[in-house]
């Protein structure tokens, strides 16, 4: 089922074209070679005459602005009195109101910080879980020879495409029989068991790009697989680990479906569920506070985007093609 893109994806060839930057600085270091994601090669063709190029930039900027406008407007509106939100399409508040944030913070049963903390716990557990369990599984698929490897690899790939909705009912029954409902365990334990197989695939791709000679040399020196994995593969795979951590962070932070199902006690609510309760209880009068808390909920993702962009962009690009 998943055959074609995967075969395409498997990098039987070298890890990646060495980046032009590394080449310029002389011999690239080992980690640079192993970590090298393809950097854009030199520009393909000169882009038309100057005026046309300028026009293009203007169009791209305008289009980007239009795309981001709703976001910017929400940010601006979070500083407006609620009545203005329904009247003022502009970005600069004619009247500033900072009380949205204090009001929104205290609008629900617990202060909003409580939900942020709950989300942070779930996210942290998920990130750690995925990093450990997926990298272990990926090492086995990328480097170890064992019977049925191709079969299990195919099973793993198919599990990536399995919709959560298909298995959520029995999962709920299972977790409720363990009395795990309204704890964070149903959200974290599966990650410790590498159920986010997408990241196994991502790391297998990356591990395959690390020269085999390295672990063979280590093996001759008497290293076992545990040490090869910890001392060679993981340190060389920091970019892949970063990509995994960042994506897990964002997906878990945004995740609504499973948190909605497993967390029903207000005390245990995470940010998305708290926001849902907020919006359900909101009449037209409290959109300001609602917007304020929505902005608060987006800040962590935005920060990750800001500082982890490189890994995000390269992460989706490599899984797509390499």
């Amino acid at each position: 089922m998943t055959d074609a893109p995967v075969r395409r994806a498997a990098p039987s060839d070298s890890p990646a074209a060495p980046s032009s930057g590394a080449a310029g600085r002389g011999t690239p270091s080992l980690s640079e070679v192993a970590a090298a994601y393809p950097d854009p090669p030199a520009r393909r063709r000169p882009a038309g005459p100057r005026l046309r190029r300028l026009g293009k930039h203007v169009a791209l900027v305008v289009f980007g602005f239009v795309m981001l406008y709703p976001l910017l407007w929400m940010l601006a509106s979070s500083f407006k009195p609620t009545a203005l939100i329904f009247r003022e399409p502009g970005l600069i508040p004619t009247e500033w109101d900072f009380s949205n944030y204090t009001e929104g913070w205290n609008a629900l049963l617990d202060p909003f910080g409580h939900y942020l903390l709950n989300s942070a716990i779930v996210v942290l557990g998920s990130v750690l879980g995925n990093l450990v369990s997926c990298s272990m599984a990926a090492y086995a698929f990328a480097r170890l020879k064992f019977r049925g490897r191709n079969l299990w690899f195919a099973v793993m790939l198919m599990s990536i495409m399995l919709p959560i909705h298909v298995i959520i009912v029995p999962q709920y029954i299972l977790f409720s029989s363990l009395s795990w409902i309204n704890t964070f365990l149903p959200l974290i334990v599966p990650k410790l068991l590498a159920t986010d197989a997408f990241f196994i695939f991502l790391m297998v791709q990356f591990f395959r790009g690390i020269p085999k000679e390295l672990d063979e040399a280590a093996r001759l020196d008497g290293c076992g697989h545990g040490r090869i994995f910890l001392r060679i593969m993981l340190p060389l795979s920091l970019p892949a680990l970063a990509t995994t951590a960042i994506f897990t962070f964002i997906w878990t932070w945004n995740d609504f479906f499973s948190q909605l199902i497993f967390l029903t006690k207000p005390d245990m609510y995470t940010v998305p569920i708290a926001l849902r309760t907020f919006v359900d209880a909101t009449s037209n009068s409290s959109w300001g506070p609602l917007f304020a808390m929505s902005i608060v909920s987006l800040i962590p993702v935005f920060l990750v985007f800001l500082f982890g962009q490189k890994y995000l962009v390269k992460g989706i690009a490599t899984t797509g093609i390499k």
């Binding site: 997926c134 272990m136 599984a137 090492y139 170890l144 064992f146 399995l162 410790l192 159920t195």
Partner: peptide
């Protein structure tokens, strides 16, 4: 043997959290 160790968490997850519920 190494593979069994490295794959253990994944395999437990595959059986308990994915295959069995499926």
């Amino acid at each position: 043997r190494a593979a069994a160790l490295f794959l253990a968490p994944w395999f437990v997850g595959l059986v308990l959290i994915t295959a069995f519920p499926l």
